[in-house]
């Protein structure tokens, strides 16, 4: 039962395969996905493909498949949520000091950023697989890239059937655990360190949580402030990229609008309000 942890994408990534005789090569390939996707999508490396795209605004730049899919999805989520989850908040995040390249500790500054920039300034050209930025801005694909890496790794591991991927709390749970049951996943208590507020059983699902215990990261792109109406939002979805994006958006939108968003997308989730009141989609509703 190989369990392996590496430090990647700003967090600890653990891959846990139930089968004793699992192919170690598959696990290596799964970890390699994190490298590949981080290399393209990091904004903490001035030479990354993402930062080269962000450098000269105003012209269409053909990008790699990884970057294209990540940006297209990030913009689609922003459009769908009215900007509740907006990849152009890079500047707002940097202003809060999250501007250190995590592998070297070197500080990175986005060049010039137009404060009025939003996802509407990111033009995705489907035919040419190109991206055009209409204003100077920095795309922050952190969450999307991490989700995408989890999903690509999950695809790589698919032949192994029963496995779990944990990228710092962003999870993909495939098949069953060592007891032959669906994986049990605890949802971190947003107010009490080290405690769980509830647990869910999942199989072949990604689980992601956004919470107000990481304030520095979650900024409402519409106001530039940290949202306060939800304490945490957890989403169960077919893939981690979607689960992460919808958890972030649902958290920003707050309990009522957040649940409506999840139901509209046909994914399950549970949102705790700042008073710890609980709202959930039907499948997770309590009797």
């Amino acid at each position: 039962m190989p369990v392996r942890t590496e430090v990647l994408m700003g967090t600890f990534v653990t891959i846990d395969v139930v089968a004793d005789d699992a192919d170690a090569g598959a696990i290596d390939r799964a970890f390699a996905w994190f490298h590949t996707i981080e290399t393209a999508c990091t904004r903490f490396d001035e030479d990354s493909e993402l930062m080269r795209l962000c450098a000269p605004p105003g012209r269409a730049v053909a990008v790699s498949d990884v970057l294209f899919e990540a940006i297209r999805f990030a913009v689609a989520v922003a459009e769908d949520t009215g900007g509740a989850c907006d990849p152009t908040v890079g500047a707002a995040v940097a202003a809060r000091g999250v501007d250190r390249e995590h592998r070297t500790g070197r500080r990175v500054r986005a060049a010039v950023v137009d404060e009025r920039a939003s996802y509407r300034d990111v033009i995705v050209d489907e035919a040419a697989r190109a991206v055009l930025l209409r204003r100077p801005l920095t795309l922050d694909l952190g969450a999307v890239a991490k989700g995408l890496a989890v999903d690509a790794a999950a695809r790589e591991l698919a032949p192994l059937v029963d496995f779990a991927i944990d990228a710092g709390g962003d999870l993909f749970l495939a098949g069953h655990n060592r007891h032959g049951e669906p994986w049990s996943v605890g949802i971190r208590h947003p107010r009490v360190d080290g405690e769980l507020i509830e647990t869910v059983r999942v199989s072949n699902r990604a689980v992601c949580t956004s919470g107000d215990y990481e304030k520095a990261h979650l900024v409402d792109p519409r106001t530039g402030a940290s949202p306060s109406r939800a304490a945490s939002a957890t989403v169960l979805a077919p893939n981690a990229m979607l689960a992460d994006a919808l958890a972030t958006a649902a958290f920003v939108l707050g309990p009522a609008e957040g649940i409506a968003l999840l139901e509209r997308h046909g994914v399950d989730g549970v949102i705790y309000g700042s008073d710890l009141s609980r709202v959930a989609t039907t499948a997770l509703a309590r009797a």
């Binding site: 049990s184 996943v185 605890g186 647990t199 919470g211 990481e214």
Partner: peptide, 11 residues
């Protein structure tokens, strides 16, 4: 539980 879902402290 097998795993815990929670936002990361990536920074």
């Amino acid at each position: 539980v097998d795993y815990v879902s929670g936002a990361t402290q990536s920074t």
